[in-house]
Design a protein around this nucleic acid. Sequence first.
RNA 1: GGCAGGUUGCCCGAGUGGCCAAAGGGAGCGGACUGUAAAUCCGUCGGCUUAGCCUACGAAGGUUCGAAUCCUUCACCUGCCA
Length: 432
Amino acid sequence: MSTDILDELEWRGLIAQSTDRDALRRDLAVSSTPPAPLTLYCGFDPTAPSLHAGNLVPLLTLRRFQRAGARPIVLAGGATGMIGDPRDTGERTMNTLDVVGEWAGRIRGQLERFVEFDGTPTGALVVNNLDWTGQQSALEFLRDVGKHFSINTMLARETVKRRLAGDGMSYTEFSYLLLQSQDYLHLFREHGCRLQIGGSDQWGNIVGGVDLIRRVEGAATHALTMPLVTDAEGRKFGKSTGGGNIWLDPAITSPYAWYQYFVNVADADVGHYLRLFTFLDREEIDALERDVAERPHLRAGQRRLAEELTTLVHGRHQTDQVVAASSALFGRGELRELDPGTLDAALSEVPTTSIRLDERPTIVDLLVATGLVDSRGAARRAVGEGGAYVNNVKVTDEQWAPAESDLLPGGWLVVRRGKRNLAGARATLVEV
RNA sequence: GGCAGGUUGCCCGAGUGGCCAAAGGGAGCGGACUGUAAAUCCGUCGGCUUAGCCUACGAAGGUUCGAAUCCUUCACCUGCCA
């Protein structure tokens, strides 16, 4: 196996910390003789019903390793998800076993799409850590695993220190490190896994496993972390638009919304994100960066990034549809001139609702019905602020109601809040 | 188990009887500028049938003309002691 993978990761900005880099390089090189590819893993806890965009970084890194000749294991944290990795903001709310199980299943399904299962020596494996911890007894755990951990070391961890300085931390979360370390040991024993990767916040958990394996098995294994994705302002990725994460599950974040998020990435972040989230090579990314620098208004980098990512997550077909919808809805052309088929297709990518013109719905009703605002108060505010549009025309009167002559082909009204929140309202014509 | 402190809007945080839907900051949202960008400036930021009403300051009771603010009980959190 080539060791170029490390250079590539370095170039992409995907390496935050690692254990002895030369040792890892040697291991990668030695594994080059089939059938002994290096085996690596990364875990994903079910803390929500879906993975989010940030999870793609480690997931795609697994894929990069696989392409370079390694065998990836993706781990769904059915067990660790029940405990909760300590975070700075305080104790996590525990979810019921049913909920965690349900989420673990969904996440497992998503994980499977990003690595290849081809039955070759580098074919991926999917595992769930509940399978080897679910039946384990507390005594067993404390004797076999707990004995190898020093409280002193655990207390020295940054997250623990911060939590102790604040509101404290439960024993449950304090134990998380042991569970994750045990996972690494288990995968080392069962599958010869010698490398664990993860976000840089996972460093402590990963080296915990490295230490455990050294103590118990006397073997040297590796740890590699990736920087947490931030934008040029240092803000956490996915938090700069819409207030929340963007999710892989199309039922939570529509492919259209997903695409739009990436089209709107700041110039300063495009190159960075292209390196992290796509498989484009150096030449292509360099060219796109030059393009963004010279002709920023064309947003070539953003468009390519959005297309690549939408294809990766939702497939080529969906991507074509959202690209067409975006260009129809954001195009310079007159909405009235769009042919009915194009309009139908474009609006199928955004939230829609149906209305009855004979009920004389006002602009406030339209904004609420399409879900563009959360309340009638917010709708009034939007109108008052000049942020409400119907068919690209600003509406400033709260009492304004559409007439039949306002309908676009197919009976549509394109309702917009602000610059880029669009929805469709289709009038049902009722004969009175 | 004892003692002390705490629990405020999406988050942080001020508020110790009326002027409190509740300072300030952050996030969010809208407008201007622009390129569906960033920065900046301005506005907005519980709900409704919106000059009014309703819901809200951990929960439930109580005192009072009036409570986020006082009293009681309960729950949870933190620290110290056992």
